[in-house]
Amino acid sequence: MSPKRRGRPPGPSDTRDRILASARELFARSGIDKTSIRSIASAAGVDAALVHHYFGTKQQLFIAAVRIPIDPMLVIGPLRETPIDELGSALPSLLLPLWDSEMGAGLIATLRSLLAGTEVGLIRSFLQEVIAVEVGSRVDNPVGSGPIRIQFVASQLVGVVMARYILELEPFKSLPVQQVADTIAPNLQRYLTGDLPGVV
């Protein structure tokens, strides 16, 4: 008979914390697609049903693990209805007002924390497996070019985040949102649908 564990029994908050810690580690190491709810539950020492109980779907668990204060699908969702030749302007027009908002401050704080820690893999998973799945399949022309197109777009958008919100470079930081969106939109559209060197 195994000895009784001393101290107070683990409560709901302990269980949630263990699940989140396991999820962060596995998502960062293997990405979203290759990480199962079952593997997260096993690493946390709980039943898979308990993971679903606390967090719902794997997508919702990922959002909680990354500590994003808004479901990104609420932002990305409208892009499904946006014509392909308007995506370049729609993306910054959706994202910049969000980043400039009070909720956006939480997003930037999360990004700053992830970049400063050991969870950069979570950002990579988010960009490649959430954004790419939603947008990349629509711009996959020629076939196979979707992922690199999305990575070029990500490089531009992450650059805006770094310059405007993390490094706070002036006067870029104080430019009107629409001016920034209108300036980068042609680049984004070219990345999404234009000819790219080396992409045949």
Results as ranks from 00 to 15, higher is better:
8 R>K: 14
167 L>A: 11
165 Y>I: 01
107 L>R: 01
65 A>W: 07
42 S>H: 12
104 G>N: 03
83 P>Q: 02
118 T>F: 08
144 G>W: 11
15 T>K: 07
5 R>E: 12
63 I>V: 14
91 L>W: 04
193 T>C: 03
72 P>L: 01
179 Q>I: 11
128 Q>C: 14
90 A>H: 01
187 N>R: 08
52 H>C: 06
131 I>C: 08
173 K>C: 07
73 M>S: 11
119 E>G: 08
183 T>W: 05
53 H>S: 05
31 G>H: 11
145 S>T: 11
81 E>A: 15
152 F>E: 11
110 T>A: 06
180 V>K: 04
7 G>N: 12
18 R>Q: 12
158 V>E: 06
68 I>E: 05
57 T>A: 02
1 M>V: 14
190 R>T: 12
155 S>M: 11
167 L>C: 05
52 H>I: 07
132 A>E: 13
70 I>N: 03
12 P>Y: 06
189 Q>F: 00
80 R>Y: 08
37 I>A: 06
61 L>C: 09
19 I>H: 05
125 S>C: 14
167 L>H: 07
187 N>C: 02
7 G>Y: 11
122 L>E: 02
79 L>E: 06
47 D>Q: 15
22 S>W: 02
74 L>N: 09
89 S>Q: 11
169 L>T: 06
39 S>E: 15
117 G>D: 15
93 S>N: 09
102 E>Y: 11
42 S>G: 15
35 T>D: 05
65 A>Y: 07
12 P>Q: 13
65 A>V: 10
199 V>K: 04
44 A>T: 13
111 L>G: 01
49 A>R: 13
100 D>K: 04
98 L>F: 00
179 Q>C: 09
115 L>Q: 10
176 P>S: 14
32 I>E: 05
23 A>D: 08
87 L>Y: 01
93 S>L: 02
175 L>K: 05
13 S>M: 07
34 K>D: 15
100 D>S: 09
168 E>D: 02
81 E>G: 13
137 S>W: 01
50 L>I: 14
166 I>N: 04
24 R>G: 05
26 L>C: 14
23 A>S: 07
124 R>T: 15
182 D>M: 06
183 T>R: 13
28 A>Q: 07
162 M>P: 00
96 L>V: 08
